[in-house]
Each structure stands twice: as C-alpha cells, then as structure tokens.
C-alpha cells in the first residue's frame, strides 16, 4: 500500500501522524483514501481535487509533472512539497 507522508503543518489534521498508509492507484485516489481516514484534510491539501498553486507532488524520489494524476504503486511513497524552480 502506498505511504502518504503528511507535511508537518498538516499533521494536526491527521491525528498527528507523520505518514499514513493509503489505498489507490493514483495520487488523487491516495488523497481520497486519506480523506476517508481523516475527513477534512483533502480540502486543505488539494481543494476541489486540484493541487494548490506553489505545491508539487513527489512520488518515489521524483517530482511528478502529472500531479494528482500520477500513478502510484503499492510500494510508492508520496510527498507533498513546495514547488521549486531552478535558474
């Protein structure tokens, strides 16, 4: 099952957990699974099912350009991090 890492500022909305085992074949499904466990968190992490501006999703070591549509495997790690730009 994918592991969704909870950003520290979001942990109060997830009973203080640092990571949550979730279900789903995409990042969006993983977040929906998180929402079932901790209602209200999805609205903060990705309101209306879209990634908030300035945020990015990292799956298995790499920032994905596909955002919430990125496929995940049962072994995947999912991180929500600030979007960054290079020079």
């Amino acid at each position: 099952m994918p592991r969704l890492f909870i950003p520290p500022l979001l942990r109060p909305f997830c009973a203080g957990e640092e990571e949550v085992i979730v279900e789903g074949a995409t990042v969006l499904e993983a977040v929906q699974s998180l929402e079932q466990q901790h209602p209200g968190v999805m609205e903060r992490l990705c309101p209306e099912g879209t990634l908030r501006s300035g945020m990015s999703v990292t799956v298995d070591q790499n920032v994905t350009p596909r955002g919430l549509a990125q496929k995940v495997s049962p072994e995947s790690e999912i991180h929500f991090l600030p979007a960054i730009g290079g020079g």
Binding site: P7, L9, L45, G54
Partner: peptide
C-alpha cells in the same frame, strides 16, 4: 501569511507571504 501545506491564511496584511515546515 500562507501555511504552505494547508493553505491556511493569516487574517491580517503582512510582509510574510509564506511559511514552510519540514520535520
């Protein structure tokens, strides 16, 4: 001030636009 991971925003004008936290 926007708490980056949660989207929560402060209620008064400020110069601090964003706050990040990693642990």
């Amino acid at each position: 001030t926007e708490e980056v991971a949660t989207g929560e925003k402060g209620d008064k004008p400020t110069n601090v636009a964003k706050r990040f936290l990693f642990e």
